[in-house]
Structure formats: C-alpha cells, structure tokens
C-alpha cells in the first residue's frame, strides 16, 4: 500500500497521523464514572468555574460506546468491580482511563475488606491523579496529559493505540 511505502516517518502517514491525533486530542468525550467524593469535584471541573468543555471534553456520555476517556472518580468497591470492568470492556478503542483520586489509584484511606485497592488491578490506567479528592485543576491537568499522550501516539503506523499509551 501507498502508506506502507512511506512507513516510518513518511510524509503522508505522519501528516495523516497528525490530523487524526489532532481530532482525538481535541475531542475527548468523557464518561464520568463518579462514584464518591471525587465525583463532586469532577462535577465542579465540568461546571462553569473550570469548564472541561474548553478542551472539547464536553457531552459527558454515560454510554461507554460513545466515550473516549473514562474518568474514574472515586472508590471502586469489590461489589462494583464487575460493573466497572464491564463498562471499560464496552468502550471502543482508542480509550483512555483517568484514575482520579487516591481511592481509584490505590484504595486510599479505605484499606478494608470491601474496597478494591486501585482500579489498575482491573483495567489499564493511563493517567493517575493523586489527591483525596484532587482539585478540579488536577483533572484539567490530566486532560492536558491526555492531549500530550495522544500527540505521541501513532494510529497509522502502529495498529493499536493503547499499546502506545502505556509507557509514554
């Protein structure tokens, strides 16, 4: 194929990649999976004061098929874990998981029998936000990190998007 001929930094492939990445980074539709305290801060980030919509992260869609960024804000308990995993599995590639808050990252203060000690035991996490709960600015920072990561991805020359997100 023509694109293959230019593989490895060819002009067509790279420009097309740039275009695709531009579209992806400017339109991260979130799936706000707010379970606990962090969910309130996520609402604040969505609302007027901080306004995630500036980065195109608008139209919070609760249908996993339509979302690009899964924002896991809050604790995932063992009871919730299957539901959460299922939501992630239903998302279409390229997908990105933002683990917002100490509970989602590591279980936080709730080192107990019923709490999942970090959602990375279930799904691959792209961006961690520490804090209990993190400020809305931190979520915006995570969106900026998502943009940075997307810029580095190579959707044409590499097949899988998520391979690249890990470890960039």
């Amino acid at each position: 194929m023509a694109i293959d001929a230019y593989n490895g930094g060819g002009w067509i492939a790279t420009k097309l990649e740039w275009l695709i990445n531009w579209g992806r980074k400017r339109s991260p539709w979130p799936l706000p999976y707010g379970t606990a305290c962090c969910g309130i801060e996520m609402m604040c980030a969505l609302a007027a004061g901080y306004d995630m919509a500036r980065f195109g992260a608008e139209r919070p869609s609760f249908s996993p098929r339509q979302a690009d960024v899964l924002i896991q804000a809050g604790t995932i308990t063992l009871k919730m874990a299957p539901a959460f995993k299922r939501i992630y599995d239903q998302m279409a590639e390229p997908r990105c998981v933002i683990s917002m808050g100490a509970c989602a990252c590591s279980g936080g203060v709730f080192r107990t029998y019923s709490t999942l000690q970090g959602i990375d035991k279930l799904v691959p996490v792209d961006i961690y936000i520490p804090g209990c709960p993190p400020r809305p600015e931190a979520l915006l920072q995570a969106l900026l990190m998502f943009i940075e990561k997307t810029e580095k991805s190579q959707p044409i020359t590499h097949k899988k998007h998520s391979d690249l997100l890990v470890g960039t």
Partner: peptide, 13 residues
C-alpha cells in the same frame, strides 16, 4: 471537525 475526525477514526463496534 475534531469531533468528526475522532468519530471517523474510532473503533467500530
């Protein structure tokens, strides 16, 4: 436009 590009290049399920 960005939304369009993103939707076009997203995995179809």
């Amino acid at each position: 436009l960005a939304d369009g590009i993103k939707l076009f290049t997203k995995e179809e399920i």
